[in-house]
Design a protein around this nucleic acid. Structure first.
Length: 580
DNA sequence: CGTGTTTGACCGGCGC
DNA sequence: GCGCCGGTCAAACACG
């Protein structure tokens, strides 16, 4: 079919999600909305299609019987719950364009393709008025058209079915992608708190304990996260455990959680595990709830959104969800990174609109506004740390209203997950660190940097801080670390042995610590092996792989991203180029 | 000339 | 009400 049509469908869906996903949504770029959208508009043959792209309601299409049918929008991903009349209306519209294309392909007389196909009976009427000698040939043409129409209808049905499948698959990929982000970032946070708590314990005991159970422990963490999703459904759908299994196994896209279930049954239960707070579990899925909440047609997306997201049966639920969305828009994500450059590179274009001297900090605070799209509300503040001026503190605020370039997806994904976590129920206190130590399995250590994720709900806006800085002198002696805590955790995964990925945050100061780069190349710590094991389990999932590929592509596929729209120092850029 | 930066002025929220 | 402070605006300026 035409690219425009496909683009329209994707655009419609992505627009839905884009409006609902938290701070930085990578999906528009992930699925290439822009090119599709632009490509479909200029085509005159697809003009009607493009009109539907605009999602203008109540467009009237005159059908063959002279009746005017109403087409609300051109959503080929429309759910099966829609009325059949709308389905027919869409089919009619689609057939028109199909028919036009076929007529031209068959090189029929010009008289045949003048008709736009809006009124198939018109030709018959005209033929009846024509001379009898032409009737035979005209009937043949009509029969041929009918045959073509039947073929086109069959093709349309097939394409619609494929669209449905694609829609489901897309939803599942998106859902798994974001769920995994939240899970992993949440995991990082819990690990941090766990580390704080366990610092009192004996280092030797913990070392042996982790060596013995590390793999199982990490696996259990993901298992518990999987359980969390399950438990959420339990609370909401009151389904039995058997029903849960059926629900998860019903769709291929839920294999992440499903695999967690399987691993749960296969893994050892030697680890001490305290059940995750149900509230926290439920809130882990908040972004999904938000996704669904802002579906334009007021109906949920299929796939995980139906499976894992609380259903809003009351206006209060909707109200709460709206409040959550408002919080997400207000939420801020702060990224601490070492950099001598004036600004870290995140792939976006920024325009400085102000600078102020903040109280208590001799370094000025710079205000930037996203200029990748007119009216993009995203802003960020950049300020050096007063204590350590090599640390750059970047605070993001707002939602991008435009597709993000691939280069911006990495940071966007990280901050998005962080913001989602921040606004989830994992934030127990009004102000302070997330205290989840009580819900963590004992002895779990993950390669997160100290204070890698800090949550604060203090006024005026909740803020989550991703600490990408690293000071080897501050490494706790009792800490069992993966190769380098300063390595950015792409989608929650520690990045080592991937030299190309070193460029991701190189402008954020890693280049200033050559030993870190060396460290990253060293064989992973035994604890890191456990992380790798868990990582491998997750990355085995094809849905995660797709999301991860998109993110990695955004990193290594754009070595010159730093040159776009920020004023990083040449040193940073050179480092990136060298690493890529 | 267009674009981005600089910088003083302005505004609104908040605490006293 | 006043002052402080954070955030934004917009004119002036710099740069390619």
């Amino acid at each position: 079919m035409d690219e425009g049509g496909t683009g329209a469908r994707r655009l419609s869906f992505d627009h839905t999600v884009d409006a609902a996903i938290s701070v930085f949504n990578p999906k528009p770029s992930l699925f290439g909305v822009g090119p599709f959208r632009s490509s479909c508009k200029p085509d005159p043959a697809a003009r009607k299609q493009a009109a539907f792209d605009m999602e203008q309601d109540d467009q009237h299409v005159e059908s063959s019987d002279g009746m005017k049918r109403v087409v609300n929008e051109m959503d080929f991903f429309g759910s099966g719950g829609r009325s059949s009349s709308k389905e027919e209306a869409k089919a009619d519209v689609k057939i028109e364009s199909e028919r036009q294309g076929l007529v031209q392909e068959n090189d029929e007389p010009a008289a045949a393709d003048v008709n736009t196909g809006l009124n198939l009976l018109t030709t018959n009427i005209v033929s009846e008025k024509s001379v009898p000698g032409d009737r035979t040939s005209q009937n043949l043409k009509d029969k041929e058209r009918v045959n073509q129409l039947a073929d086109v209808r069959a093709e349309l049905e097939r394409i619609n079915e494929e669209n449905q499948r694609l829609k489901v698959t897309l939803n599942q990929v998106n859902s798994n992608y974001y769920a995994l982000q939240m899970h992993l970032v949440s995991l990082m946070q819990r690990q941090q708190n766990r580390r704080d708590e366990s610092s009192e314990a004996s280092e030797m005991n913990r070392t042996t304990e982790e060596k013995r159970h590390g793999e199982v422990i990490v696996a259990r963490q993901f298992i518990d996260l999987g359980q969390s999703a399950k438990a959420e459904k339990d609370e909401l759908s009151e389904s039995s455990s058997d029903g849960r299994v059926q629900e998860f196994s019903g769709s291929p896209g839920n294999t992440i959680v499903e695999s967690m279930e399987r691993r749960k049954t296969n893994s050892s239960r030697n680890c001490e595990t305290v059940p995750i707070d149900p509230i926290s579990r439920k809130d882990l899925m908040d972004p999904g709830r938000n996704q669904r909440e802002e579906t334009p047609e007021g109906r949920p997306h299929p796939g995980w959104l139906q499976n894992k997201v609380p259903k809003f049966n009351t206006s209060r639920d909707v109200e709460l969800a709206q409040e959550t969305m408002a919080m997400i828009r207000k939420a801020r994500v702060s990224v601490r990174a070492r950099s001598e450059a004036s600004m870290i590179s995140d792939g976006c274009q920024w325009r400085k609109y102000g600078q102020k001297m903040a109280k208590g900090n001799p370094c000025p605070r710079a205000y930037y506004r996203c200029t990748m799209a007119t009216g993009c509300p995203v802003r960020k503040q950049v300020q050096r740390c007063a204590d350590d001026r090599t640390i750059l503190n970047t605070t993001y605020e707002g939602n991008h209203n435009h597709p993000l370039p691939p280069a911006a997806m990495a940071m966007a994904s990280t901050t998005s997950a962080a913001a989602s976590m921040l606004l989830s129920g994992s934030m127990p206190s009004a102000d302070g660190m997330m205290n989840s130590s009580t819900i963590l399995p004992k002895g779990i250590m993950l390669p997160c940097s100290p204070n890698s994720v800090t949550l604060s709900a203090s006024a005026p806006f909740p803020t989550v801080t991703l600490d990408l800085t690293y000071n080897p002198n501050q490494r706790p002696t009792s800490q069992l670390l993966a190769p380098s805590p300063n390595i950015p955790h792409l989608l929650g995964h520690p990045i080592y042995n991937q030299s190309k990925l070193l460029g991701l945050f190189s402008s954020q100061g890693i280049e200033h610590h050559p030993h870190l780069a060396q460290n990253q190349m060293q064989p992973p710590h035994p604890m890191a092996d456990t992380v790798n094991a868990a990582t491998a389990a997750i990355t085995a999932d094809p849905n995660f792989t797709a999301a991860l590929v998109a993110a990695i592509t955004s990193i290594i596929g754009n070595p010159h991203r730093d040159n776009s729209g920020n004023n990083n120092s040449p040193t940073s850029r050179n480092t990136v180029d060298n690493n890529t």
